[in-house]
Computed example of a mutant assay.
Amino acid sequence: MVKTKSRRDRLRSVIQSRGFAALGELAESFEVSESTIRRDLEQLEHSGDARRTHGGVFWTGNPSTMRVFGDRRDTMWAAKSSIGRIAAELVEDHDTILLDGGSTTYELARHLVKRPLQVVTNSLPVAHLLSSSESIDLIMVGGSVRGRTAVAIGPMAEQVLHTLNVAKAFLSVAGITERGYFNSDMMLVESEKSMITAGDQVIVVTDSSKFGKVSLSRICGLGEVNAVVTDSGINSQWKQRLENEGVGLVLASTPSSFSRTKQDESKETE
């Protein structure tokens, strides 16, 4: 029993570090049969740390230990996971969606792994996660890659984004004030502005700790997105502000059927 547990612990570490591993390669490396590896993988899948696909397995566990997220681990990971799960309910099968970088959008991606979707992203961690999913048509936006955040940004990314149209664009932010949504990287913000123009719906996914915080560069005004998905830690004043701006609020503790689009919004103002 101890030997089995030790092997599964090592197997978990291998898959986590690689992101994806082939079944035969794992069996050979651990010197066990493929049927034994399959049983081990069943346990990892049951715990939510991995998802099996044809011929292999890819990591879907907590991203907080990944290099790009490791130095930003905080007390909000549970909230981010819930936000990702609820945000995934806003996505319909066969949608074309856009995901930007960040730990919360990564959590959203974890809940989309087996869905039939077309996904556009500038995030290397998100692309890595989804690249082995047979049901997802993945489009990676190129550009200059920020090492700290592992996202592609800059003129090349913006040029590509300006040619695209998606049903829903999901954005992460570093701060939200009465003036709008902010991020700390000016080049990233320019790419996010292009993402906004690409989306029929624009949805901000963020934990409640970001409300009332400001950052270096402003993405857009408070009412220039369609919805905000956050956790129940948001206070009543912020709920009222979002309502006053016509922004749909989706709380991670409640289901949602939000479907307002920017086209609907424009019709209301005509």
Rank of each mutant, 00 (worst) to 15 (best):
T149V: 06
S266H: 12
T261D: 15
M187T: 14
A174H: 09
K80D: 06
A157C: 10
R148K: 11
T163F: 11
R39W: 02
E107Q: 07
R148M: 04
V173C: 00
S47I: 00
V166Q: 02
E192L: 08
L164W: 10
A157H: 05
H46N: 11
R115C: 05
R67S: 13
S217H: 12
G233K: 01
W77M: 12
L138G: 14
S209H: 09
M186Q: 15
T206P: 00
A152L: 03
R218T: 07
E265L: 08
E134Y: 12
S13D: 15
R115D: 05
N244F: 13
V166T: 03
F170Y: 12
V189D: 08
R241H: 09
D40T: 00
L44K: 07
T75N: 11
V14T: 10
L117E: 04
S33Y: 07
A22E: 15
N62C: 12
H111N: 13
A22R: 15
T36W: 14
R218P: 08
S103D: 07
D100S: 03
L117K: 03
S135R: 06
V204L: 05
D71T: 02
D95T: 01
R10T: 09
D264A: 12
S232C: 10
G199S: 06
S6L: 08
L41S: 05
A27N: 07
V214S: 13
I15G: 12
S194W: 01
G143P: 04
S253A: 14
V189W: 05
E243S: 14
K168R: 15
V225W: 01
A27G: 01
M186S: 15
K3R: 10
D93T: 04
A174K: 03
W59Q: 11
K213P: 06
D200T: 05
V204S: 03
L44Y: 10
R218F: 04
V205N: 04
E34I: 06
V141I: 15
V145Y: 06
I37D: 10
D40N: 06
M156S: 14
T4E: 11
L130H: 02
Q159G: 15
I153K: 02
D200L: 00
D9T: 07
K168V: 04
E134K: 13
Q263A: 09
K3M: 14
T177D: 05
D95M: 01
K267N: 15
S257L: 04
F20N: 11
N235T: 01
T206I: 00
E158A: 01
E25V: 01
